[in-house]
Computed example of a mutant assay.
Amino acid sequence: MPHDTQPAGSRARRFVWLAVGIAVFGLAWTAGWHFLADRIESRLPLTLQQLAGQQAKAECANAEIRGYPFRFGLFCDRISYDSARSGLRAEGGALRSAAQFYRPNHIVSELDGPFSFSGQAGEGRIDWRSLQSSVRLTRRGLDRGSLESQNISIDVDSTALSSRLGLRAERLSAHARKNELDADFAVYAEGVQSTLLDQLAFDRLTLEATLPGQATLLDAPLRGPQGAFDVRLHRILVEVDDTTSLEISGPVRIDETRRISGDISVTARNLQDLAELIARLDPQYAEIAGNIAPMLGAFDTVDGDDAITVPLTIRQNAVSIGFIPLGRLPAF
């Protein structure tokens, strides 16, 4: 029977060296983690200034880096943004975020409500039960990001609206990403209710669009499109219920004066109820809804289904079917 001829002292020394190595590695890791955390905290004001842009200020109150030993996370009691150039001011609740040490550019976060904002065009307040986000960053800004919320409420009072807008949704998600030179955006909502009209509700709302050549919109600091720009509407879908819906798709162009031109396809189910709903939503749309409803059946381009699909032409907010004018979209 073989015997272990290795001296007991040799095994003990190996065990001691292993324990010492683990302890040294742990101490080095701890020192390195705290060194990086201190660097992040010290550079945070400069990073926030770069994100905010010129003549603007972003603040993360009582900022602290947490997550030892394997994560780095930024925690704030309150977040705020103030732009002297645009007059926009915004403020939100506590922020909690985290990123794994081996993937520091992928950040998940959670924000407490409410979030309030005000500017030259109006003011608003957004609140929610939960709001979580996931973003992937590059040196230039955002590569892609997603936001998920539950039981969200949005209240906006703006000069661009005919009345104060109030929306409630059981679930709302928004997504943005760079797609080579383009920027892709999507918004999905479920269980939507609006205070614009009594008993106005939608089962689902969907927006999917691409802005060609606008990938730089996601670079820091984030900004809106400048000048004229194109939009590929993959789908704007409003599902009122199981029998009533409206879907819009097609390319459009928005000029410097924010007037819309394009050739789009509109698919409607239960057209009469939709026309009445659109007219109730905004009196400015009543003319178009009233003109379009009686004649759409004659222009249906898709046979054999329970929906009506027609092509619409928009030229600087003037809407028509072929040579038949229908009305004008309101300015925005």
Rank of each mutant, 00 (worst) to 15 (best):
M1N: 11
A12G: 11
A12N: 12
W29R: 04
T30Q: 13
H34T: 03
F35A: 14
S42F: 10
Q50V: 15
L51I: 07
L51N: 14
Q55M: 15
A58R: 12
A63H: 02
I65S: 02
G73N: 13
G73S: 10
I79T: 03
S80M: 12
D82H: 08
G87P: 00
G87W: 01
E91I: 09
G92L: 09
R103E: 07
P104E: 07
H106Q: 14
F117Y: 11
E123M: 11
Q132H: 13
L137A: 05
R140H: 09
D143K: 03
D143R: 06
L147F: 10
E148D: 14
E148V: 06
D157M: 11
S158A: 07
S158H: 12
S158V: 02
R164V: 08
R168L: 08
L172I: 03
R177G: 14
R177L: 14
L181T: 04
A189F: 09
E190W: 10
Q193F: 13
Q193L: 12
S194R: 02
S194P: 09
T195D: 15
T195G: 15
L197G: 05
L200Y: 08
A201W: 12
F202S: 00
T206V: 03
P221I: 04
L222N: 01
L233H: 09
H234E: 11
R235W: 06
I236S: 01
D241H: 02
D242H: 04
T243P: 00
S245E: 03
S245C: 00
E247G: 09
E247C: 08
I248L: 04
T257N: 13
R259N: 08
I264V: 03
N270L: 10
I278R: 10
R280Q: 13
R280D: 14
D300C: 05
T301S: 13
D303E: 15
T309W: 10
L312N: 05
R315Y: 06
R315C: 00
S320V: 01
I321R: 01
I324V: 02
